[in-house]
């Protein structure tokens, strides 16, 4: 009971403190690089799409607002045929970025994406894909993976031996 009275008094005293409001949009707040705003898809150092259409972001999304379909180029390199984020549903939780094994999907410090028409909040791959690597530089998933898919010869990735010669008789 007394603590309630104390609370009342303390809140009352806040009246005489300086306001913390930043007068957006006249003044803009500083947003750290890891701010969770508009989602983008990045490219790898070779300027190819980083996204390998593994569906993990879609699975991680708590509001199920990511939808995609995997497809392959002639070498078997996976990429999304379409990649759609329904921002009218997105809650910017960043779980998709956490789930992404290739640093493809990233959240950016931009939140000014209001629209008068809800339909315009549905972003397709063309809207999401940027030209750079985003926050994570230099990472190329296919250099780490075991599949070749035209990116490198089999066994040519990082920490890989050249393919085994099945026919050798050496011990």
């Amino acid at each position: 009971m007394l603590s309630n009275v104390r609370t009342l008094w303390m809140v009352f005293l806040k009246m005489f403190k300086k306001k913390v409001t930043i007068q957006y949009p006249e003044k803009k707040a500083y947003l750290p690089p890891r701010w969770r705003g508009r989602i983008i898809l990045s490219r790898d150092p070779d300027h190819n799409e980083r996204c390998v259409a593994c569906y993990l972001c879609a699975a991680a999304c708590p509001v199920d607002c990511i939808s995609l379909q995997a497809t392959e180029d002639e070498n078997g390199r996976r990429y999304p045929e379409f990649f759609r984020i329904n921002f009218s549903r997105c809650i910017f939780c960043g779980l998709c970025e956490d789930a992404c094994p290739t640093y493809a999907i990233q959240l950016t410090p931009d939140f000014e994406m209001g629209e008068y028409n809800r339909q315009n909040l549905v972003y397709e791959k063309e809207d999401l894909l940027i030209d750079g690597m985003g926050k994570y530089h230099g990472y190329s998933f296919y250099q780490q993976a075991g599949v070749a898919v035209g990116v490198k010869p089999k066994g040519g990735g990082e920490k890989e031996d050249p393919p085994v010669d099945v026919r050798t008789l050496l011990p």
Binding site: A58, D64, S67, R89, V122
Partner: peptide, 10 residues
């Protein structure tokens, strides 16, 4: 199951 709110959004 994923993508319920996006698969028909287009």
């Amino acid at each position: 199951y994923s993508g319920r709110t996006a698969m028909n959004a287009n």
